[in-house]
Design a protein around this nucleic acid. Structure first.
Length: 482
RNA sequence: CGGGACGUAGCUCAGCUUGGUAGAGCGCUUGGUUUGGGACCAAGAAGUCGCAUGUUCAAAUCGUGUCGUCCCGACCA
């Protein structure tokens, strides 16, 4: 058997064309299909299962921190968007409207929600009277629509699925605490479930959410060195409270405006997952999210099939009982080699091979999707060892992604230095920044990179602005972004 | 939304220049032989050539429009 990896004939190598690779993988792994409307995709069962996994994990964390789910309407009166000045400017260009229904023009156009701050604001104003009603902690799982100019499956689609949390608080301290708590949940989830290392920090004013006082984000690095904003959490101050008159009577019988927050992650996480972990053989799924964590493939000639299948089924039942999401593929007429490639393409973290030789030796072969390492596992310690291999896959995925992120992270002192760096490489660039929007804009114009965020814990500290050379108050991470 | 490329069977594509019977490989179905890294033989099914419209005796092929996809730019989760 040849030692070198056999690579799928149907997937363009990453090194050849990263975006082709990405599209090949999602197509071959059967995650989605294009819908007949521009920028819209069908989340096929294998793709949707990833979203269900994300939902399950996050929903548990939201509930543990006191949030409840609700559902708000898809249609939002146009006038709602006029109430907050920055918000309307930020979202108007990408708003779709319903203007006609039942063959008649509507009195007021209805926006198809791009985000629900306005609708939550309107309802919260009705629901909140007293400090006793606070904090109001509601999340919704929903679809939203943004008419983007350029679309890409999962990462940027016209309609996408997300969750949006909207909370109202008595004061700034409490609201800011909520903002940071949710950001931390996103970070923890991203690293511990998705195995994606992220940079947490604050958005610069020009990159913050339209209508927010402060926006915070987690930023992940794809394998082409570009960044994806994997989650955001906003402190909205009293901006929306004033626009929608969300007021309450405080403990001193004074009328006050609420301080509100919002936070969200979307199905773009699926895209990030693929771009962070995938390889030339296809998808690589983190075990905690993988719908199938291990697949058992029985091998052997027809005359021994019954014996092998019986053993395979025994192992299958043992793993299932132990809580492993395991699948037994005993289909006949399909060669083992074909199945190996198939499950690698679909990203199943661990493969188990069992054949006559193994049964004779009282063992099974267990193969890690990420390292490709084949291990003989004795059957008398089978479940424990498989479980620990599954756990190892997560650690190896995270470490590999972290190592990559660190290798592709640079720091520069000047714009010229950054320009020449970007002629050769892609990645995260730490640089000092004076805080001026003009300097930030110049970086974007000359390098194509935007400020991702101002990290809470920068790898290096810079004290001079890379553009103007003035005192740099902030150390900013720049990158080209999706 | 600007610049470029593309749209023919489930998938990848040929055919278009020079208009005249709809093609290949893979996949799929059936039967048989196979099974430790994408097996083999045989038979078979499958496409209003993205959609609309114009030119023509005749359009996958030429023109126009439109929708969608990809790549490059400006806008974004």
């Amino acid at each position: 058997m040849a030692q070198e990896k056999t690579v799928s004939k149907e997937i363009t190598p990453q090194s050849e064309d990263f975006s082709r690779w990405y599209l090949d993988v999602i197509k071959k792994a059967d995650l989605m299909d294009y819908a007949p409307v521009r920028g819209c995709i069908v989340f096929k069962p294998d793709g949707y299962a990833l979203w269900e996994g994300i939902q399950q994990e996050l929903d548990r964390r939201f509930k543990e921190t006191g949030h409840r789910n609700a559902y708000f309407p898809l249609f939002i009166p146009e006038s709602f968007f006029q109430k907050e000045k920055e918000h309307v400017e930020g979202f108007n260009p990408e708003l779709p409207f319903v203007t006609e229904a039942g063959g008649e023009q509507l009195e007021e156009k209805l926006a198809i929600r791009p985000t629900s701050e306005t609708m939550f604001g309107h309802m919260y104003a009705k629901w909140i009277q007293s400090y006793r009603d606070l904090p109001m902690l509601i999340n919704q799982w929903a679809n939203v629509v943004r008419w983007e100019k350029r679309t890409l499956p999962f990462l940027r689609t016209s309609e996408f699925l997300w969750q949006e949390g909207h909370t109202a608080h008595e004061d700034e301290v409490d609201a800011r605490k909520e903002t940071m708590q949710m950001l931390e949940i996103y970070r923890e989830f991203s690293e511990n479930v998705l195995a994606i290392p992220v940079i947490t920090g604050q958005k610069t004013p020009s990159e913050k959410f339209a209508g927010a006082v402060d926006t915070f984000s987690i930023e992940a690095m794809m394998q082409d060195g570009r960044a994806v904003q994997a989650g955001t959490s906003h402190y909205l101050g009293t901006n929306f409270a004033k626009a929608f008159e969300i007021q309450f009577t405080d403990r001193e019988n004074q009328l006050q405006f609420c301080h509100t927050t919002s936070w969200g992650v979307s199905t773009r996480l699926i895209g990030a997952l693929i771009m962070v972990h995938g390889d030339d053989r296809g998808l690589v799924l983190p075990p905690k999210l993988a719908p199938t964590q291990a697949v058992i493939i029985p091998i052997g000639p027809a005359k021994l099939r019954e014996t092998v299948n019986a053993k395979a089924e025994e192992l299958y039942n043992e793993l299932r009982k132990a809580g492993v999401r395991v699948k037994l593929d005993d289909r006949e007429g399909i060669t083992p080699g074909w199945k190996f490639n198939e499950y690698e393409m679909r990203g199943v973290p661990v493969r188990i091979e069992i054949g006559p030789r193994d049964i004779e030796n009282g063992q099974a072969i267990v193969v890690s999707r990420i390292t490709g390492a084949k291990v003989s596992v004795p059957l008398d310690d089978f479940v424990d060892q498989v479980q620990s291999m599954i756990a190892n896959v997560h650690t190896e995925m995270f470490n590999k992604a972290l190592a990559f992120q660190q290798e592709q992270t640079y720091d520069v002192d000047s714009l010229d230095q950054m320009k020449s760096l970007f002629e050769q490489k892609r990645g995260f660039v730490y640089a000092g920044w004076c805080g001026s929007a003009d300097c930030e804009k110049q970086v974007k114009e000359e390098t194509g990179a935007t400020s991702r965020n101002i990290p809470f814990e920068p790898k290096v500290k810079k004290n001079k602005c890379l553009v103007c050379g003035e005192h740099g108050e902030q150390t900013v991470v720049f990158a080209r972004a999706y």
